[in-house]
Simulated assay, not measured.
Amino acid sequence: MAQEDQQQQVLLRSVDLVKFTVPASLAQRAGRVAAAVEAGEQVVELPQGVNGKGLATAVAYYRAREDAEARGADVGEFDEEFVGGLTHDAAIDLIHAAHHLGDQDLFNLFAGYRAN
């Protein structure tokens, strides 16, 4: 957490006014957010299709994925487990968020996934 405190922080706000403060490095994983961060914005109003639930799931994914990478975990396996652990509704919210955030990598997590 000390490293996060030293990084630039960005406030992400969804259409339903849910807010998350995240390090700029995490926020920049989403293409549309990256442009705002690079322009120096510290508060980023997210597109209409990003609701609070989708944003919460995206932020949880970004944080957990960053932690998995830092531990040297198999990120492909991590991605499968993360997606597999989502409820149907959470998966739909995350797909919408990924699309509207312009995060193709996050969106592609669902390309070959089939729920049981």
Rank of each mutant, 00 (worst) to 15 (best):
K53Q: 14
F110R: 06
Y62W: 12
K53T: 11
T87G: 14
V59E: 06
H96D: 06
D67N: 08
E81P: 02
G72K: 08
R63A: 15
A60M: 09
D79L: 15
A97D: 04
A60P: 00
G72R: 08
F110W: 13
H100E: 10
E81H: 10
E77Q: 14
G72V: 08
F82G: 01
D105H: 06
L106M: 13
D67W: 06
H100D: 07
H96R: 05
D79W: 15
R71S: 12
D105A: 10
G52P: 02
L109W: 02
R65T: 01
T87D: 09
E81D: 08
D67C: 10
V59C: 08
G85I: 13
G54R: 03
H99D: 08
F78R: 01
G52I: 00
H88S: 14
L55W: 00
D74W: 10
A64D: 09
D93H: 11
F78G: 00
A70T: 06
D89K: 08
A91T: 05
D79N: 13
A56G: 09
L94D: 01
H100L: 12
V83N: 02
E77N: 09
D89I: 15
E77A: 09
V75F: 07
G54I: 00
G54M: 03
V59L: 09
D67I: 04
Y62M: 15
H99T: 12
N108A: 15
A90S: 07
G85E: 06
H100P: 02
V75E: 05
D89V: 15
L109Q: 02
H96V: 07
L106K: 04
K53A: 15
E77K: 12
H99V: 05
L101I: 02
F110G: 05
A98V: 03
A64I: 02
A97G: 07
A98Q: 04
N108D: 15
D89M: 15
F107V: 00
F82L: 08
G72W: 08
L106Q: 03
E69Q: 08
G102S: 11
L109S: 03
F110V: 05
A73Q: 12
A91Q: 07
T57M: 11
E69L: 10
L106P: 02
E66V: 08
H100M: 09
D105G: 13
L94N: 00
G72M: 07
E80N: 11
R63D: 10
E69F: 05
D74V: 12
G84V: 14
